[in-house]
Amino acid sequence: MSKEKKMEKDERRRRDSIARGVGTMIVSFIGYIVVPYLIQWYVYPLLPEGIELEGISELLDRWVLGGVPIMIVSLFVGYFGIGSRGWLASSIIHSLLRIGWVLYVLNFGDLTGIFAMEDDGGWQRVDVVIYGFMYLMVALRLLKLLIVYGDYRDNRSAYLNGGEEPVDRGKKKKGKKDDNPSSDGIRVKGRFN
């Protein structure tokens, strides 16, 4: 990708966009609502008889239920331009919700009875407990908050500049206040940011 195209893309990403918000929400809808139902509709019939699907069904129910708030918040994450406080707030909420979603879907690491099978011949039951992996996953997800804040910081001044990178950025002297009045972050295009 050429530098101009990348800059153009970055500029677009810094602008608020309803279409992008709806697009992000549709992607979330597919991931959190459609996929679990597809599993229930298309994978369940393929499983051999005798398998008790209670454990997996409960997991998929949690997947959908926990996904609804993420789907709603993803609308705002997509709508707000990177660098806006709205984007920062919605992205932080989105990241925290995803941490909660992982914990909730995996039943806080206790997947007792996730697989069970019983017929006249015998029984099989699998219990999985993954507390250690849960802590690692949560730690990794918390680290993603740093990425959110980093992206916000990197794009903040450009966002306040109407989406374009400030041209005098490199000339700014240490300790000297920015000449660009918009960098005070008070009012741009008639609204607070």
Binding site: W123, R125, V126, V128, V129, L136
Partner: peptide, 21 residues
């Protein structure tokens, strides 16, 4: 039946309970 419990690095435990009738 037999129950096999496997614990890996104190991070994950899998219990497999199986038997015949």
């Amino acid at each position: 039946g037999q129950v096999v419990s496997l614990e890996y690095e104190s991070m994950a435990t899998i219990d497999i309970d199986m038997g015949n009738k």
